[in-house]
């Protein structure tokens, strides 16, 4: 059976390459009974549509940056609470604490969780040196969702809404002067052409999640289900290893191209942690019992 798998990021992105490896793992394990065809770069469904498409059976399997759906259920955004889990290890711990709750939320939406892979940690890109939260005031900051808009608000930055496709141009013409993203975005969009500083504050590590339509999953025999889950576990681990490897490479590439790359000053770090405490409380207020339990489990470790 052929399974079309829409993925949102370009074929050369490690998430997509990892997805392709997952597909061949499943193909081998099932002797071709499940033939997953990867459609990278949003060439089948755009990123925004992939979850709904899998939910309703338009595609049997797909990948999505789940935190984009936090409007539906705050739990989907647990990986993207700013300054809560700020390293690969913390992110793993947080995910271990929250995974079952997220999988249950997906299950309610007719989706079966398979695996997820983190992006490199999010850092700040600026056009100037920033040593404290006060230095951020008045800077035109790209806010693309509720959380980034809130960061702008807390820091006294001017939030500007810029779509991903227009980011490079907006930076070049000064419509935006700062944004928060992983090192990979900076390298992919050659951000050194417009900006000068990268602060590796490791604000959060968003995750791309692979899920299967529940009906398609239930129609598989036990061997097929096991193959999918085993390959998923392998792909999750391989993807994360690759993410760690690439993180350093990305930072090196940014530095090689003339950007000032480094960690935040203590003062900046303290200020950002203050934002983190505020935003975690705000998140907890909206996320209900499951969310509180996940954060408690994370903090208990």
């Amino acid at each position: 059976e052929t399974w079309d798998m829409p993925m949102a990021y370009p074929a050369t992105n490690y998430h997509s390459e990892n997805g392709t490896a997952f597909a061949s793992c499943v193909r081998d394990a099932t002797q071709g009974a499940i033939d997953i065809v990867v459609h990278a770069g949003g060439s089948l469904f755009a990123g925004n549509d992939i979850k709904r498409a899998v939910q309703t059976g338009q595609a049997p399997i797909g990948e999505r940056l789940l935190s984009a759906h936090a409007n539906e259920n705050p739990l989907f955004g647990v990986d993207s609470i700013p300054f809560l889990a700020t390293s690969f290890d913390d992110s793993d711990k947080l995910w271990a604490a929250a995974k079952d709750a997220v999988a249950a939320a997906l299950d309610e939406q007719n989706l079966v969780y398979v695996y997820s892979v983190p992006w490199p940690p999010q850092g700040f890109y600026f056009k100037k040196e920033v040593n404290s939260v006060a230095d951020m005031a008045g800077v035109k900051f790209r806010a693309y969702n509720a959380a980034t808009a809130r960061i702008a608000e807390l820091a006294g930055m001017v939030p500007v809404q810029i779509e991903a496709a227009e980011l490079s141009q907006a930076l070049a013409t000064g419509v935006a002067e700062s944004f928060i993203s992983s090192g990979s975005t900076g390298v992919d969009s050659k951000v050194w052409e417009s900006l000068t500083h990268f602060y590796d504050v490791q604000a959060w590590l968003p995750r791309n999640t692979i899920f299967v339509n529940k009906d398609s999953f239930n129609a598989l025999d036990d061997a097929g289900k096991a193959a999918l889950m085993d390959c998923g576990a392998k792909a999750g681990a391989a993807g994360e290893a690759r993410a760690k490897e690439l993180t350093d490479q990305y930072l090196k590439t940014l530095a090689e191209n003339g950007m000032t790359v480094g960690g935040p000053s203590d003062e900046l770090k303290a200020g950002l942690q203050g934002f983190g405490a505020t935003m975690t409380e705000e998140w907890l207020a909206s996320a209900g019992d499951a969310g509180r339990a996940a954060i408690a489990a994370y903090r208990g470790n």
């Binding site: 370009p10 050369t12 992105n13 770069g41 991903a164 496709a165 227009e166 490079s168 141009q169 070049a172 992919d188 969009s189 050659k190 052409e193 417009s194």
Partner: peptide, 15 residues
């Protein structure tokens, strides 16, 4: 823009 985003090349350079 679409080409640059898909292929990870600088959109400024392409422009």
């Amino acid at each position: 823009i679409v080409y640059g985003v898909t292929i990870n090349e600088s959109i400024t350079k392409l422009f």
